[in-house]
Amino acid sequence: MDTGSLALRQFTTPEAVSPELRDELLDCWIEVTNAGGAAGFPYPPIDADLAGPAVDFLVAGLDPGSSRLLVASVDDRLVGWLNVRRDDFRLVAHWGTLHHVQTRTGLRGRGIGAALMRRVREIARDEMGLEQLRLAARGGAGLETFYGRLGWREVGRWPGALRLAPGDDRDEVLMILAPL
């Protein structure tokens, strides 16, 4: 698949997400997780019965001011997506958190994830009025390097916070992008 025709679209309300898009989000999430991706479900394999409610919860929470879905497509086929959220509590309303950054496994290394990350930075700054973004990444998966190339910096770790299997403890890596 040529990614030269990459299109990025954001969704800010539940009504904007069609049943077809919901199914594509679900399929991508299952694919990424079952390939070992750190996308919110630590113990593959997963299926639609497990991931479906998570997709529905994410979509139901979409709101222009506090939660947006950014989708990457090629030829009208979903190839990646992420969610950016902010807490409306005034004390922390100036920063947002990225969730579920993922791309189709067979299309990694083609700039889709980087394009999503660059665009979400613009949306967070210019449309949501955020000053910084945060994320937590699973250590040992090379994610620190990916995010680091895009300007993110590590600000801390929770050593061994994630137990994927007996004897497979991973750090949770805390990263920040500031200023936007």
Rank of each mutant, 00 (worst) to 15 (best):
R85Y: 00
D47E: 11
F146S: 08
L21W: 01
D88Q: 13
R149K: 14
E15A: 15
Q10T: 06
G140E: 08
W152R: 12
H100E: 06
R153C: 04
R157I: 04
A137Q: 10
R119M: 04
P179G: 07
D49E: 12
P166C: 10
R119S: 08
P14M: 01
A165C: 05
R138Y: 09
G111K: 12
G148C: 02
A178S: 14
R163N: 08
W81L: 00
T103E: 14
L116S: 03
N34L: 04
A60Q: 14
N83M: 13
R22M: 08
V74A: 09
L174V: 13
R134I: 00
A161M: 06
F89K: 15
D27P: 00
D171W: 10
R149H: 14
S5F: 05
L91H: 13
M117L: 14
G167A: 09
S67P: 00
G65V: 04
L98A: 05
G109L: 08
L164D: 05
T13A: 15
A48T: 03
V120Y: 02
R104I: 01
T3R: 09
V92D: 00
R119W: 10
W81Y: 11
L25K: 05
R153A: 05
S67R: 15
T3H: 11
P159V: 02
R119N: 12
G139D: 02
S73C: 11
L174S: 12
R153N: 10
L150F: 03
G148V: 01
V120L: 02
L133S: 07
N83L: 13
W81A: 14
G40K: 12
G61H: 09
A51F: 00
G109T: 06
E20F: 05
G139A: 05
H99G: 01
L174M: 15
P42H: 12
D171I: 06
A38P: 07
R118L: 06
S5A: 15
A124D: 05
L82K: 11
V17T: 10
G106P: 07
P42T: 06
P179Y: 11
V92F: 04
R118T: 04
R90A: 12
R153S: 11
L143P: 02
S66V: 00
R77E: 13
G156C: 09
I176L: 14
L69I: 06
W152Q: 10
G142Q: 12
L21V: 01
